[in-house]
């Protein structure tokens, strides 16, 4: 009985620890890994470069689960905080990242636009894009 409980506990902890989403760049990008803090700064447009390369962050349009997960886990901000942040940024002359209407178009944008960085569900990742962070 104890043995079964232990196996269940291990399986449960593995499933909760595994990532649902990936931050990605194009497969040909020279960037291999970025910290969550650096990704946060890039999507808040506090930083614009990584490893000497100018980056172009792209968001999924609206309030779909991947975007909400990204905002909660990477940006660590809710919608009210983000509205406050981008309102102050408007006065500074900074606009939020570009958006794409669907996950497929986010992926295509990342493949085609030099320096693009975005996020997708793990199951959509293939050899056309490169994972640099999982969350």
């Amino acid at each position: 009985m104890k043995c079964w409980l232990l196996i269940l506990l291990i399986l449960f902890s593995q499933s909760t620890l595994s990532a649902d989403f990936a931050v990605i760049v194009s497969a040909t990008s020279g960037i291999d890994v970025l910290s969550s803090e650096r990704i946060r700064d890039i999507f808040l447009k506090k930083r614009r470069f990584a490893q000497g390369k100018r980056l172009v962050p792209v968001n999924l349009l609206g309030s779909k689960p991947p975007r909400l997960a990204f905002e909660r886990r990477i940006l660590e901000m809710d919608r009210l905080n983000l509205q406050q942040y981008w309102t102050a940024s408007h006065f500074k002359g900074v606009t939020p990242p570009a958006t794409q209407a669907s996950l497929a178009s986010v992926k295509l944008f990342i493949e085609k636009v030099d320096g693009a960085i975005g996020y997708l569900p793990i199951e959509m990742v293939d050899d056309r894009v490169k994972v640099i962070y999982e969350f």
Partner: peptide, 17 residues
């Protein structure tokens, strides 16, 4: 490529022409 914006205008974030 299909571009989509959050909306060209949002109060507090200006009008992106």
């Amino acid at each position: 490529m299909v571009w989509a914006a959050e909306g060209n205008y949002q109060l507090g974030q200006g009008f992106k022409l």
